[in-house]
């Protein structure tokens, strides 16, 4: 079992966490017409990086979303922080 640090609850078992998606995806503003390739990029394209990744995760037991920086090869968690800090 791997221990992930929730920024709110502290270190918890990996099974309590859910991977939500890559950080930094912004939904196109639908006030204007969006070209099909731009929708495709938003919906489907993934950076899928090898090494350092920035992702959004949820701690299921407290339902908080947060940012995790980790290494996608070694699985080492480098940092976790509240998503709200990112939004500010």
């Amino acid at each position: 079992m791997q221990i992930f640090p929730c920024p709110f609850c502290g270190p918890r078992n990996e099974t309590e966490f859910h991977f939500a998606g890559e950080l930094g995806k912004v939904r196109p503003a639908t006030a204007e017409k969006i070209a099909a390739p731009d929708w495709a990029t938003y919906l489907y394209a993934q950076r899928n990086e090898k090494g350092l990744v920035h992702e959004v995760w949820m701690h299921l037991t407290c339902s908080e979303l947060f940012v995790m920086e980790r290494d996608s090869v070694t699985m080492q968690v480098l940092d976790t922080r509240s998503l709200r800090e990112d939004a500010q």
Binding site: Y44, A45, Q46, R47, N48, S72
Partner: peptide, 18 residues
């Protein structure tokens, strides 16, 4: 490693997760 190769070749982000 298709995303890694695609990035190397400059063909954009693929709709792939490893």
């Amino acid at each position: 490693h298709s995303s890694v190769i695609a990035k190397m070749a400059g063909c954009g982000d693929l709709p792939i997760t490893s």
